[in-house]
Design a binder for these strands. Structure first.
Length: 925
DNA sequence: GCAAGGTC
């Protein structure tokens, strides 16, 4: 061991780490600081001893990556080569202009050093940056000795331990990043050039930018992010509202009101609901069967990491994630909050949490709370929970300096600082405590329940007003107590589509699927907005633009998952293999690029899919010569929306008919016609109902196999809104162009609030353009259609291929045919349908067999046997007489749980076929 | 003019 002092160049990934580590190692003794070439990256100097070796330590930093990857010059220009060449064009790493000063500092300092110690973040990117630093330093001084400091937190013990146990840099980690960079560059550049050059000039793309400057970028992170937005949008469009029924019960006493909920939730079968409701109203006496009292805790949030900060700022303040990170960065630079880019959501046991709280005691708004927190007598303190993530480099985001507001702060600086402080104080507080009482009652064998809650201690909620926990008082009940409900109603509702994705939803999806990193997610979201792929409304919800939807649709029609997270997931797995030494960088690169090139070439062969998808939304540009997709058709009426142009009948390339406004794209009024239309021609006959006229009638011919048997193949119809046949067939068969085929995966009925803001001009009832929900022509038909569905459950597209398994209709005796439903909710489900056009009988096949599952619970024509007590011989004489064996009827007779045949057309109280029992005037009570 | 990843 030489006793001669060696000079050691230490390099951290960012200035803050250089400063912290220098302070720890020098113990703030003899620490000097001087300027480097870069104004942000200072150089700290102090003496230290590494394993007995006296060292003159120089500590500086970079700012993230020092180098970028680019194609060689001759491939840089867009028209310099075929985009497919970019999969093998030579690439090089270089130091960009704005990093040259850091490079010069490293070169100058390296020349006078014997050792180089790499203090970059201990993750893959950090390891890669370490090798960039090594490249620069060894080019200036090839004799320098390389060492890596491996640390897991910026705390004394870790740092001293790291410097006394220096290791070798990990090439595998760095290789993994090299592979990722190269794949991202080649895929991104090739697809971006391809789709931009293919589409930009071929269509009139109405974006706020000059067409010539429009870039239709593709990237392995931005496209899956776009995919999340489009997928949700399609889910909303494919949603078929479904009517459901539920029984509500309330009870008012001297102590207040209790609103009981039906424990079945709701039923989709009206007849079932009516039967049960009937039983309840006939024996309305309620018996309290259970009173459950329990203490409930509402826990404070986990310590704050980047994604959570972005999500909460979006939810509480509607700040964009990009703006949040900008403001957080400024607060960090000014020393008010800790480092804002961190995955960590648990505090190290060594963090001095009390001191952080102490600093906040003087704040006019939360100072008192901080004082209470520190007073052991209050018992308010509780050690923070662990969220389970630790990036080993930074603590959770927390306040680092007291402020009651600074002169230069904007409202957003104040809000974000307040969020960070209140979140921190909440984390070290006790959970809120509530007392919950759940009361269950039985009415005629049906169970109902209500929950009351009293907040006993607010605790953390006192300092965290962003979260709330509602209390609700209910009267006192005892088991066995009986009462007559104040109200007992049969109510209806309709399933709603899920809402558009909010910024917080989007961040969650990206986080879950591994798209981007905590430091880049907001960039990808911003990129979608900058590229005009999506728009964001005032409640931070995202809608794809026509451009965004068309691009995703084009690749989807090719059958590629380029807009799904899968590609990124595969790359992530490959990177992991490289970083573990399981695969080599070259192997992964060769394999991955070969596959992606094949995919690229295939996509280019199938470019017509992209063109077709774009053609649905955009006019062909004259620049590209001609407009084959929008040939002018016959005039049907004057457009009621723009009141300028004519609406004409058109046939799209995919064979579907529509009536669209010639003012397109300025006016987007359109009526989509049923997908089952095979021929359509405008006649000279006019409608004498629809205004403003004239509205010319259209002679339609439908494909027989695609419409229910009780509809005629030929139909003279009106698109003005008066034509119920057309409306029904549109509902049954789906609209022509695209939406029915877009429903991906099961669409779960949800009860979210009505869609407030979908794409402009799109009706939320029928999803067509040209009118709003309020004046939707299908709106008033909705209830009639629901009624029709109840009467005649032929609510599907029918495939008449399976005719052999026939049974006799129990209603009229005619043969029944086994068919397959083709609606979104029942696609593939078999049912028997009577062949007689006069008879409406049908029964689901799985109700005849012993099928099980939720579907039979919610949509079955028989009452589920979830409540066997109901058949206990109560009610009117005939009820309970039935020979029902299990949850499903064993014969083709359409029966209720009680065994009663159900005609579906008469009132159960008076037998009158003109109404149902819930509105029967003879029902009484 | 293209990606995504660091960071001021």
């Amino acid at each position: 061991m030489s006793t001669r002092t060696v000079t050691v160049l230490n390099v951290a990934e960012k200035p803050s780490v250089a400063k912290s580590v220098s302070a720890i190692l020098s113990r703030n003794q003899g620490l000097r600081v001087r300027e480097g070439r870069s104004r942000y990256n200072k150089i700290f100097e102090f003496t230290y001893s590494i394993r007995g070796q006296p060292c003159q330590m120089l500590f500086t930093s970079v700012t993230g990556h020092l180098m970028e990857l680019e194609f060689e010059d001759r491939y840089r220009k867009w028209h310099s080569c075929d985009p497919a060449d970019l999969y093998h064009a030579p690439v090089r790493k270089f130091v960009p202009e704005d990093k040259k000063d850091i490079k010069r500092t490293l070169e100058e300092e390296a020349r006078r050093c014997q050792w180089l110690v790499l203090w970059l973040d201990c993750d893959r990117e950090g390891e890669n940056i370490a090798f960039e630093v090594v490249d620069v330093c060894t080019a200036a001084n090839r004799y320098v000795t390389l060492k890596r400091a491996r640390f897991s937190a910026l705390i004394d013990r870790e740092i001293h331990n790291a410097v006394q146990n220096l290791v070798e840099p990990n090439k595998w980690f760095a290789d993994a990043v090299d592979a990722r960079q190269e794949i991202d560059l080649r895929i991104g550049a090739s697809f971006t050039r391809f789709q931009t050059m293919l589409l930009r000039d071929a269509f009139v793309i109405d974006t706020p930018t000059d067409d010539r400057n429009l870039v239709l970028s593709y990237g392995p992170c931005q496209f899956p992010t776009l995919g999340f937005v489009v997928e949700r949008y399609w889910e909303i469009q494919a949603h078929e509202p479904e009517e459901f029924w539920l029984i509500n019960c309330s009870h008012r006493s001297d102590e207040g009101v209790a609103n009981f909920s039906w424990m079945r939730g709701h039923l989709f079968d009206y007849t079932c609901a009516v039967i049960i409701y009937e039983m309840c109203t006939e024996e309305p006496n309620a018996t309290v069967t259970n009173v459950k009292q329990q203490e409930k805790l509402k826990y404070p949030p986990y310590p704050l990491n980047t994604i959570e900060l972005e999500k909460r700022a979006s939810r509480y303040f509607r700040m964009s994630s990009e703006h949040t990170m900008k403001v957080a960065e400024e607060l960090y630079q000014a020393g008010f909050i800790s480092y804002p880019r961190t995955e960590t959501d648990s505090f190290s046991s060594r963090t001095d949490l009390h001191t952080i709280v102490q600093e906040q005691q003087g704040h006019p708004e939360w100072g008192i709370y901080a004082q209470r927190l520190l007073d052991p007598g209050t018992g308010l303190w509780r050690n923070p929970r662990s969220g389970g993530h630790d990036d080993k480099a930074h603590p959770p985001i927390h306040p680092t300096k007291f402020s009651a507001g600074e002169a230069g702060w904007s409202q957003d600086h104040r809000k974000l600082y307040e969020l960070v402080v209140r979140h921190f104080l909440a984390c070290v507080s006790k959970p809120a405590v509530g007392a919950e009482t759940i009361v269950e009652i039985d009415i005629a064998g049906e169970q109902f329940s209500v929950c009351g809650r009293v907040i006993l201690e607010k605790n953390y909620l006192d300092v965290y007003p962003f979260e709330s926990w509602g209390g609700s008082m209910i009267p006192t009940y005892t088991v066995g107590q009986q009462f007559i409900p104040t109200t007992l109603t049969l109510d209806s509702g309709v399933t709603r589509p899920p809402p558009l994705l909010s910024e917080a939803d989007l961040l969650s999806s990206m986080d879950k699927e591994g798209i981007g990193t905590d430091a880049t997610m907001h960039d990808h979201i911003k990129k979608l907005l900058d590229r005009f792929y999506v728009t964001k409304d005032s409640s931070t919800r995202f809608t794809p633009t026509n451009l965004g939807e068309a691009l995703v649709m084009g690749y989807d029609d090719m059958g590629y998952k380029l807009w799904k997270p899968d590609l990124r997931a595969v790359m992530e797995r490959d990177m992991k293999s490289v970083s573990e030494g399981v695969k080599s960088k070259d192997e992964v690169l060769a394999n991955s690029l070969q596959q992606m090139k094949a995919c690229f070439l295939d996509a280019r062969l199938n470019k017509v899919k992209l063109l077709e998808a774009m053609g649905i939304f955009f006019e062909r540009s004259n620049r590209a010569g001609g407009d084959e997709l929008h040939a002018t058709g016959e005039v049907v009426r004057k457009c009621g929306l723009c009141q300028e142009s004519d609406m004409v009948l058109k046939k799209n390339r995919d064979g579907n008919f529509m009536v669209g406004c010639l003012g397109f794209p300025q006016c987007r009024n359109a009526v989509w016609l049923p997908g089952s239309v095979s021929e359509a021609a405008v006649t000279t006959n006019t409608c004498n109902i629809c205004t403003p006229g004239p509205v010319y009638l259209i002679q339609f011919k439908f494909r027989q196999l695609e419409i229910p048997p009780n509809y005629s193949v030929n139909h003279l119809g009106c698109i003005g809104g008066c034509d119920e046949v057309l409306t029904q067939l549109t509902e049954i068969c789906g609209r022509g162009p695209r939406m029915p085929a877009r429903a991906r995966g099961p669409i779960t009925p949800t009860s979210h609030a009505n869609q407030s803001d979908t794409r402009q001009g799109l009706c939320t009832n029928c999803q067509q353009t040209g009118h709003s929900l309020n004046d939707c022509p299908s709106q008033n038909l909705g209830s009639r259609n629901a009624e029709r569905r109840r009467m005649n459950q032929h609510n599907g597209n029918f495939d008449l291929h399976a005719g052999e398994d026939s049974v006799s209709c129990s209603s009229c005796g005619a043969p029944c045919v086994l068919r397959t439903a083709n609606t979104a909710n029942n696609r593939g489900r078999k049912f028997y349908s009577c062949q007689s056009q006069e008879c409406n009988f049908f029964v689901w096949e799985d109700n005849l067999n012993n099928s099980t599952g939720e579907r039979s619970f919610t949509r079955s024509n028989t009452i589920p046997a979830s409540n066997p007590g109901r058949n206990g011989g109560r009610g009117r004489g005939q009820r309970g007489r039935g020979s029902r064996s299990g949850p499903h009827a064993a014969t083709a007779t359409f029966v209720s749980a009680t065994g009663d045949p159900i005609s579906g057309r008469r009132c159960f109280v008076c037998g009158d076929p003109s109404h149902f029992a819930n509105v029967c005037p003879n029902r009484g009570g």
